[in-house]
């Protein structure tokens, strides 16, 4: 799917780049703090792993579009094109099923943390649960509520999710929100891929190895040399 990049695509690329940059800077700063300033950034590790999760899960949806997910294409390549297309469509359906099931699972996991109802049903959502234990109060381990120049940009969520009671640490509903968000994006990208396969604009979902683009570049260089 080498279609032109939209503004949304560029946003996702920058998102991945910026999060990886932030992760590196925070971890590096913790080392500097320990040796030069003789303190520790206690929340550094936790914030970094949250950024890590956001980067990978959001990035995974975008990687569908760039056809970067790893897979085995040895069998596909041995097939005649019409049969290959059928296999491709079947594979895309499997991916859509995966994204649907995980979207339900992600919603069910996250919803109660945001004082929202999870869905009923084991395989597929059959309506929302009526009674549940809200977990909006449930805080993360180490990450304090942010304070910037005396401003408390996140304090409003205390009123919305914690009955006005003060959060010492950010609530779990914030980092975990990436799960339903990313699974919805993943579903969108797999449906998009299915359509592209159907229309013949795409021949498979997978890259056979992690360095396909680098190799293309390198091969070009070798040919030029």
């Amino acid at each position: 799917m080498h279609e032109p990049r939209t503004a949304f695509d560029r946003f996702q690329e920058n998102f991945v780049a910026v999060l990886l940059g932030l992760m590196t800077v925070i971890t590096f700063a913790n080392v500097v703090a320990r040796y030069i300033l003789n303190t520790g950034i206690l929340w550094g590790l936790e914030v970094t792993v949250f950024l890590f999760g956001w980067m990978v899960l959001i990035g995974a949806a975008y990687a569908v579009k760039t056809k970067s997910h790893l897979g085995v294409d040895a069998v596909l390549l041995a097939l005649a094109p019409p049969r290959r297309r059928q296999f491709g469509l079947f594979a895309a359906l499997c991916c859509i099923l995966y994204a649907l099931l995980l979207l339900k699972g992600s919603w069910d996991y996250w919803a109660n943390f945001a004082n929202l109802p999870a869905t009923e049903g084991r395989w597929f959502p059959l309506g929302f649960e009526e009674k549940f234990r809200a977990k909006g109060w449930y805080e993360t381990q180490d990450t304090p509520m942010p304070e910037l120049f005396g401003l408390h940009p996140l304090d409003w969520i205390q009123d919305v999710f914690n009955e006005g009671e003060e959060y010492e640490k950010i609530p779990r509903l914030l980092p975990y929100f990436v799960l339903p968000l990313a699974m919805a994006l993943l579903l969108y990208r797999y449906v998009q891929a299915f359509v592209a396969l159907w229309r013949g604009r795409l021949d498979s979902l997978v890259a056979s190895h992690e360095a396909e683009e680098a190799v293309e570049e390198a091969a070009q260089k070798l040919k030029d040399a």
């Binding site: 320990r34 003789n38 303190t39 520790g40 206690l42 590790l45 936790e46």
Partner: peptide
């Protein structure tokens, strides 16, 4: 001035700071 590993807990972090140490998660 020593760096102490503590369980993730505000109380334990405060305890190490009271000693003049640095808590590390």
């Amino acid at each position: 001035g020593l760096k102490f590993r503590v369980q993730s807990s505000d109380v334990l972090a405060a305890q190490m700071e009271a000693l003049g140490g640095t808590p590390q998660a």
